[in-house]
Design a binder for these strands. Structure first.
Ligand code: ZN
Ligand code: ZN
Ligand code: ZN
Ligand code: ZN
Lengths: 152, 152
DNA sequence: TTTGTCTTGCGACCCTGTCCCATTATAGTC
DNA sequence: GACTATAATGGGACAGGGTCGCAAGACAAA
């Protein structure tokens, strides 16, 4: 786990370097928080709170800038669950479409399932002549623990 | 068209009445704008602008309140295309899932296609024990006119 | 008319996110 | 190490979308 983290950090350092950018302590702390919360789907504010614990003097703007930078570098992905805040998540390979989200309306848990839209997208491209480059998909409902309970 | 409009207005008037609410001139004007722009996927601000032409003294807050009210009554649906503004659209029956959106990254056109997720949702419910009540789906890419042009 | 309730417009306010700018950190070169 | 060019930072002002509280207005029932 730790060597994987260091490896990832090195990768990112190289990516930044290629653009004459630096992996500053603030950026590193932000990346670490993201890596330590892979399944957390953290919002910028949440990342900020967690980063503050590692680097108390960091500014909110820096976190936002770092997140934007990492999105541009395709290191992380910006998600929108429709709750008014952007959320961020590590990207495994540089590929989009790696998974979908199931959002529980009762407990708020977000779980992930594999991408199931490949065939469907082909169908849409054929039928409608629309060239799909990305999709935004989430499913709302009740997780196995919360079934039958209705809204919170 | 006009009789359909009146019919819809009567329906809505009844729905409101059932909750001891009134179909005020402001609310009626807002509903009319929405009905006259069925495929427009209007934002609140856009609705406000159009309503102002019919009822110049209406306040922005009233439009927001009316939209929220209509969403609660399941008369319209609140959409999120990820561009930072909420958009609104009439609901045909009171059913969700009636269609998906294809959003062109070049010209911004939003077109609609039928809901194709029925089978997929069944599969997800079986595999993951997650009871789906709604989904948010949009496909991003390039429409038939804009194919091969890349981002604007 | 009186009363109670729903509704309105307005402005203050909130929240997420961006921008500006003076200051600071960093990497590279001598 | 010292010097320099450039990238990066923190903080605060600001922006856009949206919500809230409130006093005033509209309306229906009695
Ligand atoms: Zn749950
Ligand atoms: Zn995820
Ligand atoms: Zn197009
Ligand atoms: Zn639509």
């Amino acid at each position: 786990m730790d060597e994987k983290l260091m490896e990832r950090l090195q990768q990112i350092r190289k990516l930044l370097h290629a653009e004459q950018l630096k992996l500053t302590p603030q950026r590193e702390a932000t990346v670490r928080v993201l890596l330590e919360n892979q399944e957390g789907h953290l919002s910028a504010e949440e990342v900020f709170m967690l980063v503050k614990q590692k680097a108390p003097d960091i500014g909110l703007a820096t976190v936002y800038r770092t997140l934007e930078l990492l999105v541009d570098l395709r290191v992380i992905e910006k998600l929108n669950f429709g709750d008014g805040v952007a959320r961020y998540e590590f990207r495994e390979n540089d590929q989009p479409h790696h998974h979908h989200h199931l959002i529980c309306l009762n407990c708020g848990r977000v779980s992930e399932i594999e991408d199931l839209l490949g065939d469907l997208e082909k169908k849409i491209e054929e039928r409608h002549g629309f060239q799909i480059t990305d999709h935004r998909v989430s499913f709302l409902g009740y997780c196995s623990r919360c079934r039958g309970k209705g809204p919170a």
